[in-house]
Design a binder for these strands. Structure first.
Lengths: 182, 182
DNA sequence: GAGTCCATGTAAGAGGTTACATGATTTC
DNA sequence: GAAATCATGTAACCTCTTACATGGACTC
């Protein structure tokens, strides 16, 4: 069995909202699922072309008042079906990769200062991300209370908030521990 | 710039302990860094061959009382240097990928039951992993108290414990929320 | 004699990353 | 006139995944 092409399912997923261009899909990814999935141009555009060939999306050109023309993609019936089939497959395994932890694991006194620098940057960036997530979480909670249909999105945001929160706590402790250990 | 070959650095890292076979390296990975980095045979063995060619490790055969002969790899000076160079590069970005969150995000009433099943399996497995981590964390804390050199490993274990703990809390809440939302 | 562990790998093919390229329009 | 945003894409590379293959030794 081949490697699963998640890019394809993500595109299909966003196209259930409404027809979108590759550019807009990228923006959507960045503004919603970025903390647990990223997509670059090198993935989106070739995949989109492939999907047209496979008949899971259709494309039409649209001229815009601002900026150049864009290619807008719509979900076809075949696409909708492919997405639904995928949603039915159980899948609970996740992957987490951290070069920083690798360096910590193989680290020693000689690398302590570099690690401390990394941890500080990590802490700073994580705090910023968490501040954004915090706002998201509140908004989504309200949206969910009004419209229970959005419980699914809310739960992904909640995870993000919790994830960043834990990272902050860990980084704070790690910095403290490393500083005191000479 | 090309994608970083972390497999290579992980192997170099473990070889600083003592000379090891590919098989043993895999066991080490599984028993220590698996929660934030995994390696399969398809990565370890070809990389090891490549590393011999590049002169960063050397290989000699060893016959064993139990089981077949094994190829044992040792770190060369060039390898030690390559590892040290890498340890100096600052790097704090991490990647987290979750197909389950993708499915949650694009999920709806129709997929609720599948999602609930996934979440329950996820919760069960995460609890098991956390139980192991809990023991690790206690052991490492003690080791660290006796020998501060091990603070680096301790902090990676601590992160694992916290990571699993958060996942458990989130999964419990997600199940509760999904169940109550009909 | 079945199952598990030790121990080595290979083949095929994607998926993904990084970097570069192009050009229009809007804003300061 | 510079910078930012809109918008599309390609090239090269290679890491990683998945699956398969082989065989000895030990244990129940």
């Amino acid at each position: 069995m081949a490697k699963t092409n998640y890019t394809r399912y993500i595109i299909l997923g966003f196209l259930t909202y409404r027809p979108l261009s590759g550019y807009v899909i990228r923006k959507f990814v960045e503004r919603s699922i970025a903390y647990f999935w990223q997509l670059g141009n090198g993935q989106i555009y070739p995949t989109l072309n492939r999907m047209v060939k496979d008949g899971v999306v259709s494309m039409h050109k649209e001229s815009s008042d601002i900026g150049p023309d864009s290619k807008v993609y719509s979900l076809t019936e075949a696409g909708r079906k492919e997405l639904d089939e995928w949603l039915k497959i159980p899948e609970y395994e996740e992957s987490f990769r951290s070069p920083m932890l690798l360096k910590l694991f193989f680290g020693n006194r000689a690398t302590r200062d570099i690690l401390l620098e990394d941890l500080k940057t990590f802490l700073k960036e994580t705090r910023e991300k968490q501040a954004v997530m915090e706002i998201f979480e509140k908004n989504y909670r309200q949206i969910m209370d009004e419209n229970p249909e959005h419980v699914y999105m809310y739960l992904t945001v909640l995870r993000g908030k919790m994830w960043y929160g834990t990272n902050i706590k860990w980084a704070e402790q790690a910095i403290k521990t490393l500083k005191s250990a000479k």
